[in-house]
């Protein structure tokens, strides 16, 4: 564990608390893509199935359980508790176009050709692109509540912070995880446009609005 990874994980935790806070206080899931949230449930379950056969640390297991539980809870909030506030007509990104390529990538790029490893690789690729329905929705509406942009910024920062972690691990442990690194760079890259608007507008006190 190094500082970058720890800050990345904290940022990931923070993003979930911000999202929960947004839903609970506004009593609405407006502006949040259900499809992206559902993809995260798939990502976490696929990746953290190793809870059953691999023990890394208490920290690691606790975080895994938290991410699975919180992502399922968010789906519950969106689908049942605050269902009327979710507008499916603007959340239309076809997730098949993400799931199928990720499955193919996982079958080609994995560290061992068995069920758990292919599933792990699948979750890594899927996580990289799971934000696309959300970004697509943002693009369509052209604006977002501030709290939603804070959520996205924290979520984007999480994988971005893993990049210095991988550089650090390369120099200190000689370890490189090419699948995670490649997907992580793609994942961070998808946020660049968003980060640009976030830093130049939201953090300057303006509303998040995309140029028409």
């Amino acid at each position: 564990m190094n500082i970058f990874r720890f800050l990345g994980d904290l940022s990931h935790l923070a993003s979930i608390f911000i999202l929960l806070h947004k839903i609970q206080t506004t009593r609405s899931c407006r502006g949040i893509s259900f499809r992206t949230q559902a993809l995260y449930v798939v990502v976490f379950i696929a990746r953290y199935l190793d809870l059953f056969f691999r023990y890394v640390s208490l920290y690691n297991s606790a975080m895994k359980l938290f991410f699975i539980a919180s992502s399922c809870y968010i789906l519950y909030l969106m689908k049942i508790r605050y269902r009327p506030t979710h507008d499916p007509s603007i959340d239309t990104f076809r997730v098949e176009y993400l799931l199928a390529p990720c499955l193919i990538l996982a079958l080609i790029f994995n560290y061992k050709f068995n069920f758990a490893e292919v599933l792990w690789s699948f979750s890594i690729w899927l996580e990289a692109v799971a934000i696309l329905p959300q970004l697509f929705m943002l693009q369509r509406t052209g604006e977002a509540e501030n709290i939603t942009t804070h959520y996205l910024a924290a979520l984007g920062a999480y994988r971005a912070l893993y990049i210095p972690n991988w550089i650090y691990r390369y120099f200190t442990e000689g370890l490189v995880d090419p699948i995670a690194v490649t997907a992580g760079i793609v994942q961070t890259g998808l946020y660049l446009d968003f980060f640009y608007v976030y830093f130049t507008k939201v953090l300057q006190g303006q509303k998040f609005e995309l140029p028409a």
């Binding site: 990874r5 994980d9 990931h12 190793d50 691999r54 890394v56 690691n60 975080m63 895994k64 991410f67 994995n110 560290y111 061992k112 490893e117 792990w120 893993y162 972690n165 691990r169 370890l175 490189v176 995880d177 995670a180």
Partner: peptide
């Protein structure tokens, strides 16, 4: 175990 890091990251 094929992964270089042993999947010790989240």
């Amino acid at each position: 175990e094929g992964a270089p890091t042993g999947h010790d990251e989240l």
